[in-house]
């Protein structure tokens, strides 16, 4: 797969397809496998299907909803051809993904647009920010990143390296500085330099730590005080290998700082990705980007259609 020495430039679609290749082989191929040789859709087949869906981290509830829909159609004799199962699952998953509230990313704002990136420890926030900065810079935007993860050892250095890779400036202070103070500096600098996009890196925090969530709330307040309407986006990074706790994370971060979109990181590393569906179903938060590799341009905009198509083609 893609590593530092990985293959050259690839199109958007092939990248996504490659990233979900392992999901594809596990979800779709498995469905095809259990269907093989079956004449009709029976209870045993549906049980197998349930195991497959849960095995893709969709969670018990989401899986049950999908199965319920299918069971209904089977009992009303609308379908009985096992080869149709694959398409039924596909339709169901797409319907769930499309049921998010459809917030539009990148609504134009006058002045600096502030994007806060949040998440639990180790999900890939800093890496994602490097890629995100690169993406905006390529769109001819003036971008600055703010190193407000002043807690983790070497987090600032890591962001600096990513800033260089993406060719954007970084506003930083010392490790241990008050994150809100760094943010304030970054906003002041962004205003005076007429920056289009300010991307704020934050320290990883478990959503169960009230004081740390409070710190995030404070940063949000400061941003809003300095630039009305800011932060314009709060993006929650979720590790694609995360299980059902991903839902709790999304819920808790939403409660504290109002998550406007999800970035699913490390999709190239996992065989699953089902938590995406569970989050869309439960919280209606749209997935905005997907991280598909370690290179600076390995971040692509999420589209449910492309995602599902690459899963099922």
């Amino acid at each position: 797969m893609q590593t530092l020495f990985g293959p050259q430039e690839k199109g958007f679609f092939s990248k996504l397809k490659e990233a979900v290749a392992s999901t594809r082989s596990h979800l779709v191929t498995k469905i095809e496998d259990v269907v093989k040789g079956k004449k009709e859709i029976d209870a045993e087949l549906l049980d197998d299907l349930e195991a497959i869906l849960i095995g893709a981290d969709l969670g018990v509830e989401t899986s049950n909803e999908v199965l319920e829909k299918i069971r209904n159609q089977v009992s009303r004799k609308q379908i009985n051809d096992p080869t149709q199962l694959k398409f039924l699952v596909k339709d169901e998953l797409k319907r769930i993904l499309d049921s998010t509230d459809g917030r539009v990313l990148d609504k134009e704002v006058a002045g600096t647009r502030v994007i806060m990136v949040v998440g639990v420890n180790g999900v890939g926030k800093t890496t994602t920010i490097g890629k995100l900065a690169n993406l905006y810079r390529q769109k001819e935007k003036k971008v600055v990143v703010c190193a407000a993860d002043t807690f983790r050892a070497a987090a600032i250095e890591q962001l600096e390296i990513w800033g260089r890779r993406a060719g954007v400036d970084i506003i930083r202070q010392k490790t241990g500085a008050d994150p809100s103070a760094v943010l304030f500096d970054a906003i002041t600098a962004s205003k005076s330099r007429a920056i289009d996009i300010l991307i704020v890196d934050t320290a990883g925090r478990l959503h169960t730590k009230n004081n740390l969530m409070g710190e995030l709330e404070k940063m949000k307040r400061i941003a809003g005080r300095e630039i009305p309407g800011a932060p314009h986006e709060v993006l929650l990074v979720i590790d694609a290998t995360t299980g059902q706790n991903g839902l709790v994370q999304a819920r808790e971060f939403t409660r504290s700082v109002g998550v406007s979109g999800i970035i699913l990181a490390k999709l190239d590393g996992t065989a699953k990705g089902g938590i995406v569906v569970a989050i869309a179903r439960d919280l209606k938060i749209p997935i905005q980007y997907v991280g598909v590799g370690e290179k600076v341009d390995d971040l692509i905009q999420f589209s449910s259609e492309h995602y599902i198509n690459s899963l099922f083609e």
Partner: peptide, 10 residues
């Protein structure tokens, strides 16, 4: 990571 899902096995 304690938060890992089904992929932990693999």
């Amino acid at each position: 990571d304690a938060m890992t899902g089904q992929d932990a096995v693999k």
